[in-house]
Amino acid sequence: MSAPRRFDAMSRFNVAALALGLAFLYLPIVILVIYSFNASQLVTVWGGWSLRWYVAFFNDEAMLAAAATSLRVAAVSATLAAVLGTLAALALTRGERFKGRTLFSGMLYAPLVMPEVITGLSLLLLFVALGMERGFWTVTIAHTTLTMCFVAVIVQSRLGGIDRSLEEAAMDLGCGPVRAFVAVTLPLIGPAIAAGWMLAFTLSLDDLVIASFTTGPGSATLPIRIYSEVRLGVKPMVNAICALMIGAVALTIITASLATKLSGRRGGNAAPM
C-alpha cells in the first residue's frame, strides 16, 4: 500500500527542489575546478586545457611553505582535538553528574556558533598575556580549542546510540572500566572518532579568521596567503590551489566511506556528521 503513496509524495516539486538545491551547492565548485585548468592568463577567458597554474603553484615557495604550515597545524590540532573531544563526549554521556557539568557543556557548544572574530581575538589576548611567542603552537592551540567541540558533538551522538548493556556485560564478566572501554566502547565509536578527526583536520585547514589573529611572523597558513591574494582579485593560481584542496577533501571522503563500507555494516550510521 505504501508504494503508490511514496510515489505520489515524491512529487515533481520535491524533485525540482532537490535538483536545484544540489545544483546550487555543487555548480560553483565544479566551475572553479574547471577554470583551474584554464590555459589563459585571464581568469575569465577560456584558453584551452592546461596544467600551468598547478605548475606555478608547485614553484611558488611561499605558497608551498604556507601549505606545509597549514598541513602541520591541521594534523597536530586534529589529533589533539580527537583525544580531548572524545574525552569530553565520554564525560558528558557516561558521567552521570559532576560539578560544573552545565558550564562544561555550555563551553563545548558555544564555540560551534561563536563568531570567529571573538574567539580569535580572545585567544590572542591570552597568548599575549601569557607571553607566548605567536606562531605554529598558538595557531595549533587555537584550532584545537575550536575543533575539539565538533569532535565532542560527533562522538557524543555516536555514544548515545550505543547499547550500554554491552559495556555492562563486559564489566559483569570482570573487565575493569578502562578495559571495558578499550575492548567494547572504543571499537564502536572508532568510526565516529575518525570522522571527528577528519572534520577537525578540514576545519583547521580552512580557518582564516582565528589563524590571522593567533599567528605570528613566518607562520602564515594557506588560507591567510590565499586571502591576501584574493583581496587583490581573482588569480588563476588560486583556482589551482583551491582545486587541489577540493580534490584532497573528495579523496578523503571517498576513502572514508569505502573504509566504513568495508569494515562492515556493524558501524551503523558512521556518516561524517
Binding site: P28, I29, I31, L32, L199, T202, L205, D206, L208, P223, I226, Y227, V230, V234, V238, C242, M245, I246, V249, T252, I253, P272
Partner: peptide, 11 residues
C-alpha cells in the same frame, strides 16, 4: 567539508 574561503572565492 570544502573550505569556506574556497566556497566564497568560487562566487
Amino acid at each position: 567539508w570544502t573550505s569556506f574561503l574556497i566556497r566564497v572565492y568560487a562566487w
